[in-house]
């Protein structure tokens, strides 16, 4: 996992978000204010630009650039939350990057979100996708799985976590205003977290294929 890996991850995440922009906005329209797709698309487009303008020379730097850009360009709730997550990950990430190192950095990112947003699992937020993903990574490390397998499990866990927000009643963010009416809808932030983890798994596939070549 070199700098290129992280740049590819972030770019891939940007592409997935661009493609799912309308779905994210629709999820947000149902229980929020219909801007999550636009927010993240704007943010990750800026991230891609920043990565070109200031090409990172280390993995941590790629994450810090992404985090800072998201904080500086997105606004809303998701901007500071995702931004802080990537920044915390970047700060915790040690070079050279190993799977255990990545898992620990990822967990630091999740903790940053929890600390800033004061949300807990079950509150129907991005935490409900990010925390299971982090647990999956840790478990994979313990089991000695390959990065490819670890990221794949993390992506699946995020997906499942996101879907698990559907029956939840929101306790944080805009959706909490709806009370009972928030039940039955997937949380947009959890959905975008699943996309970002999906991109991670996708890049790992590419890497794995590369290794095979």
């Amino acid at each position: 996992m070199d700098t290129g890996f992280f740049v590819t991850w972030l770019r891939d995440a940007a592409t997935r978000i661009r493609l799912q922009r309308d779905r994210l906005t629709e999820l947000d329209a149902a229980i929020g204010d219909a801007d999550h797709g636009a927010n993240l698309d704007r943010g990750f487009t800026e991230v891609c630009k920043a990565l070109e303008d200031w090409p990172p020379t280390a993995p941590a730097q790629a994450l810090l650039t992404a985090g800072t850009t998201l904080i500086r360009r997105v606004g809303g709730a998701s901007g500071p939350l995702y931004g802080s997550a990537f920044r915390a990950m970047g700060k915790a990430l040690q070079d050279p990057v190993t799977l255990p190192g990545f898992a620990a950095a990822f967990e630091a990112g999740v903790v940053a979100v929890e600390r800033l947003g004061k949300a807990a699992p079950g509150d129907k937020t991005m935490i409900d996708a990010l925390a299971p993903a982090s647990r999956a990574l840790t478990a994979a490390v313990e089991k000695g799985l390959t990065p490819y397998e670890a990221f794949h499990r993390a992506a699946v866990a995020a997906e499942e976590g996101s879907r698990a927000t559907i029956p939840m009643r929101a306790r944080k963010g805009r959706a909490s205003y709806l009370g009972e009416r928030s039940v039955g809808h997937e949380d947009p932030g959890a959905a975008s977290s699943a996309l970002i983890l999906g991109a991670l798994a996708g890049v790992a596939v590419k890497e794995a294929t590369k290794e095979v070549d």
Partner: peptide, 11 residues
């Protein structure tokens, strides 16, 4: 002023 319905950024 932020984007439509989106908080401004810290900058």
């Amino acid at each position: 002023p932020g984007e439509v319905f989106t908080s401004p950024v810290p900058d």
